[in-house]
């Protein structure tokens, strides 16, 4: 068992990281930070999850969010999808294992994966609206968000949601405010089975190793860690009993990466576009300098007068 998160002190604590620890800032550059924070991670063990949704409740409570009363759509997923208020949802999948013919109930807590190479940040046009700290947390700064929805196009996991109330994008913050004062995310704190644990990324990988060994000893020979390299690894990782088939967990991406279309859009298009527009303008400017204006001559006017009969009238 991973040691539970200690209860917080009641004394006010200064934030342990902030602006000075940014390694990426959307649509702008940051100076490399003077120090490197220890990378943190949340580990979600799908094999220990009982689907109680305590994490969902804790998330709403800590972030002071209210999900509107929904409807029962006949499945346990509630709400059915992530929303601007529900930054995490449990996704329930019923899967018949073809080897054992057992019905397996796979429950995956969905939410932002805090990619090391965040597609949302790459796509964002608003300077500073999305930031990445050197501990791996990817956070949205709502004061700077313009609500364009580019982060949705950039994200390989379909996570950000735009609020129809304030037109800003919302997603899991990995409780950056709690982590900054030495606490863990609210969901991890609330999880009754330690299916969600939080610590440094190294600790989480080690803990996962023990869990995977245990699962393998129980017959889950494909148990493994989900830390997809296509996005540089993530700071929210899963222990999956069937790591060879991530898609059975409510379509978890097998090999997530920033879409090549987004790379094209935010890469060569941006620079080639500016160059093309600049090139056309420069051509016009040079052409004018060299050849001067194209003026109508006296003779042209005379010809027109002859043609229209004005010269005789």
């Amino acid at each position: 068992m991973f040691p539970p998160l200690p209860n917080p002190t009641v004394k006010p604590t200064p934030a342990q990281f902030g602006e000075q620890d940014l390694i990426r800032r959307s649509a702008s550059n940051v100076a490399p930070p003077a120090r490197q924070l220890t990378p943190v991670a949340k580990l979600i063990d799908t094999s220990k999850c009982i689907g109680c949704k305590a994490c969902q409740a804790a998330c709403l409570e800590w972030n002071d969010l209210r999900e509107k009363v929904g409807f029962n759509s006949g499945v346990l997923d509630n709400p059915l999808d992530l929303t601007p208020a529900s930054l995490t949802v449990m996704r329930f999948s019923e899967w018949i294992n073809p080897e054992t013919q057992n019905l397996e109930w796979l429950i995956r807590k969905d939410g932002c994966m805090h990619c090391a190479d965040p597609g949302c940040l790459k796509a964002c046009p608003a300077p500073g609206a999305i930031v990445q700290y050197s501990n791996g947390i990817v956070d949205f700064d709502h004061d700077r968000c313009i609500g364009c929805g580019y982060c949705i196009k950039g994200c390989p996991f379909n996570i950000p949601r735009i609020s129809q109330v304030d037109h800003k994008a919302y997603k899991c913050t990995l409780c950056s405010d709690r982590v900054a004062v030495g606490q863990g995310p609210a969901c991890a704190k609330a999880c009754p089975t330690q299916a969600i644990v939080f610590g440094t990324k190294e600790e989480m990988k080690q803990h996962a190793e023990g869990r995977i060994k245990d699962l393998k000893s129980r017959g889950f020979k494909n148990a493994g860690l989900y830390d997809p390299p296509g996005v540089g690894g993530t700071h929210v990782m899963y222990v999956l009993h069937h790591a060879d088939k991530p898609e059975i967990y409510a379509n978890l991406a097998r090999d997530p990466r920033i879409s090549p279309i987004v790379e094209l859009w935010k890469g060569v298009t941006k620079y080639a576009g500016l160059a093309a527009m600049g090139g056309f303008a420069a051509f016009g400017f040079l052409h004018y300098l060299i050849s001067g204006p194209n003026k109508v001559s006296e003779e042209d006017e005379k010809k027109a007068e002859q043609l229209t009969g004005s010269d005789v009238s």
Binding site: S297, D300, K303, A304
Partner: peptide
């Protein structure tokens, strides 16, 4: 426009 412009 002027006639000259149109002619030209």
């Amino acid at each position: 426009v002027t006639g000259g412009w149109a002619w030209r």
